[in-house]
Simulated scan of single mutants.
Amino acid sequence: MGSSRPLRADAQRNRDLLLAAAARVFAERGTDAPLDEVARRAGVGNATMYRHFPTRSDLLVAVYADEVAQLCAGAEELRAAGSPREALHEWLRRFMDHLTTKRDLALAASHETARHAEWHRSMLGAASGLLEEAKRAGDVRADLDVRDLLTLVRGITLAAADRAQAERLLSLVNWRA
């Protein structure tokens, strides 16, 4: 929605329900899934859905933006929960999952070039913070570069035959100090 005013509580709840339902539907049935199914699963009418998301593209972009926000927020949770090295490794596993499971969403939202750059910066920032903490703790090699690390994970994701192989390949990376 173009307004900068915050949504009413019920409108925000409906928007959140729609995003959650759309994420599930698109994950199960692809980005071409019927939007009626999204509204039905969210427990709202089609008119409510179209008030929030006038086009399929608007909904796809919002869902992908939400997925990126969740991935990046996960970095903060991991930072608070464990060792810097483990936090970095777990976030990279989540990034790998994101690349694998959100590919169609990312492609569907790729026309949003300004937003795409923003999403990329967010993910880079999340990984960078975790990497720098792991470096300060002496848990990883000091010469690791965050862009190289994310490129490596992308390469593993593209090259692996399945999830198990991707996990094995990621575990082979020598990033220890």
Rank of each mutant, 00 (worst) to 15 (best):
L59I: 02
R15T: 03
A42D: 10
A39K: 05
V146M: 11
R136M: 06
H111V: 00
R136K: 09
L124G: 02
W175H: 12
E67Q: 12
A166K: 08
L99S: 04
E77R: 09
R79H: 14
F26S: 05
R40E: 15
G129H: 06
L107Q: 10
A81N: 07
H111K: 07
A108T: 01
S4E: 13
I156S: 07
S57C: 01
D145Q: 13
L18N: 06
L149D: 05
Y64E: 12
G82A: 09
N174T: 04
H98T: 02
V63D: 10
A80D: 13
A39W: 14
L130K: 02
G82N: 04
R85C: 01
V140W: 13
A21S: 15
A160N: 09
L130Y: 13
A81G: 12
W175R: 07
H52L: 07
R24S: 12
S3V: 02
D32A: 10
D145I: 03
V173A: 14
R136L: 10
S83E: 15
L107G: 11
C72E: 14
S4P: 02
V44I: 04
E77M: 05
L124E: 12
V140P: 10
V44N: 13
R13T: 06
A11Q: 15
L71N: 06
R93P: 00
Y50E: 03
R115V: 00
T157W: 09
L172R: 11
D139A: 15
A109G: 02
E28H: 07
H111D: 11
A47S: 13
K102H: 15
T100R: 15
Y50T: 05
L105G: 09
D66N: 09
Q12G: 07
L107H: 12
R24V: 07
P6F: 08
R141Y: 05
L19E: 10
R163I: 01
G129M: 05
V61N: 04
R141I: 00
D10Y: 10
G155N: 08
E132F: 04
E132P: 01
N174K: 07
D139Y: 04
A47T: 08
A161S: 11
